[in-house]
Amino acid sequence: MIDQDIIRRIYRDIDGELDFQVPAELKNFLAKNPEAEQLYRDWAKIGEKFREEKENFREVDLKQQILNKINMEKYVPSEKISFSEKMQQVFFSPRFKIGFAFVLGIFLGIFAFSILNQGVTGKKLKQQDVSGTMWDSRSYDDMVTADNILYESPMAKATFNVKYSTRLVEAHINISSLYPVKLAINFDPNAFMTFNVQNTNVNAQTTAMSSYNYVEINNVGDNQFVVLLYNKNNLSNKINFTIYQNEIPLYTNSVTINKE
């Protein structure tokens, strides 16, 4: 019976784990112990056979089969980009630009509406408080009424609705005649100046002409005009309306603007 410790030392020797001194000592022991020596020789032979086996490893080439079966996409690198690059991508993307323009438009719209809304819903001011502002451009309905004149005869029919503000005089004129008549509007050029004559509903036979200090309308049929005069000085002044037929006055009247 061989000592287990000796067997272990034999194995260690065969495995090449012992240093140079020990095998000599071991071999001395083996020389005196035939059973242990036989074990040593047996394992030396087994070791030799295994080495032969190792040298005769079978060749194999399975590389292509393996590569064909694996999922090549599994480790496809994800492109790592820095935070600043990511931000640049976001800010310069068409989606962001459109979104930004949309939001900016909304804010500008709200801002503009809030400003304009103040003008619409703001407190109404007195005339003297808004002198020299755009108040003059307010609507006809908000102007001060100077007079509403009605003339009616077999030859002609006319209405003169005259309103004024600090800078404008606006006369809405409806005139109707079966035969040609002439309407002459005269005023002091120091007080008023012709600004505009609008033919709101005028037929082809009717004409209107104006100069800095008068307006002349040659009328046939039913027509409507809006005459705008520049109100120069806010002093009390008159505008004269005269209707002629064949240069013969049929009707004359006047409207006082800037009444005190």
Binding site: D61, K63, I66, I70, Y75
Partner: peptide, 13 residues
Amino acid sequence: ISSFGLLIDKYQK
């Protein structure tokens, strides 16, 4: 993927 091919080359035998 070619690096995995090298590992196969080295260890398949």
